[in-house]
């Protein structure tokens, strides 16, 4: 473990918001996140009432349903010191978009604001709040990193994952010139306009392949599933993973996203 922030209260109660995609599609990211948070010294809580942050509804203009789901999340998580999600976009939803959903409702706005202030994306939480500099992880591979749009532009996440990756033994980072370009996922956008979304992820795949990296890493499962799906459809051998798996050391025992294999 690298340096830690000793100025924090003890214990630090962290509510882990796994996000619906991790919860349902790739629990191993949740376990990896849990491991990292506990190793950083957090006392972890996984509320059972958690489901979805409401992003699909919110981004479709369905603010009523988004509000209803937000109420759920607020109730489930407001009791913790911090709320952490292994996803920049779900964390950004809570942090930046919840307050606007309750305009005119002073009580809910206050509850929202309080939750927003303590909600973080996993990797940046570990470095910026917990003061972690490394996890003594090993991962023999060349990798390229995708900066997910919400994490990058709404949460300011860029250097944090790179600092953590730099401390991973055996990991060689090959930056793509298009690391900050959108992968074309955009939630329901990829469902409603599959051809347009497909062209964007094709361009993204070209850039990823051009780095010659063996592994694609990122911090947001939605984007990673999108890119992995396209890369695999193109016959690429590039393996796609959430960075948390690499940092937690669970990568060797977990098939990459979309890969066959059964760890049960």
């Amino acid at each position: 473990m690298g340096a830690m922030n000793t100025a924090l209260k003890n214990p630090i109660d962290v509510g882990l918001f796994a996000t619906c995609l991790v919860d349902l599609m790739r629990p191993s990211v949740g376990f990896a996140a849990a491991r990292l948070l506990e190793r950083a010294g957090c006392t972890l809580h996984v509320p059972e009432a958690q489901t979805c942050c409401g992003q699909p509804a919110y981004n479709s203009g369905d603010n009523t349903d988004a509000r209803n789901l937000a109420v759920n999340v607020i109730a489930a998580f407001e009791g913790f010191d911090y709320v952490v999600a292994p996803s920049g976009s779900c964390a950004a939803m809570i942090r930046h978009h919840y307050p606007a959903l309750f305009e005119g409702d002073a009580t809910m706005t206050a509850r929202c604001q309080s939750l927003s202030n303590k909600t973080h994306e996993l990797l940046s939480f570990l470095t910026d709040i917990m003061g972690v500099t490394e996890f003594e992880a090993e991962f023999e591979a060349t990798a390229t990193y995708h900066d997910s749009c919400s994490g990058l532009r709404e949460m300011g996440i860029r250097e944090q994952p790179r600092a953590l990756m730099a401390a991973v033994k055996g990991l060689e980072l090959r930056e793509s010139g298009e690391a900050q370009s959108c992968c074309g996922f955009g939630g329901l956008f990829s469902v409603k306009y599959p051809e347009v979304s497909g062209r964007i992820v094709d361009a993204k795949s070209d850039a990823i392949e051009a780095t010659g990296a063996e592994t694609l890493l990122g911090g947001d499962l939605g984007c990673l599933m999108n890119m992995s799906g396209r890369l695999r459809a193109r016959g690429s051998a590039i393996k796609t993973r959430h960075l948390a798996e690499v940092l937690a050391g669970t990568a060797p025992e977990t098939p990459a996203i979309g890969e066959e294999g059964d760890k049960d």
Binding site: P27, V29, G229, T254
Partner: peptide, 21 residues
Amino acid sequence: FPILPRPEGGSFVDQWKRGKR
């Protein structure tokens, strides 16, 4: 729907509740 990979199986929250780590 190439975007949907084969899920790993089980839910994180359920497995956590059952004590898996």
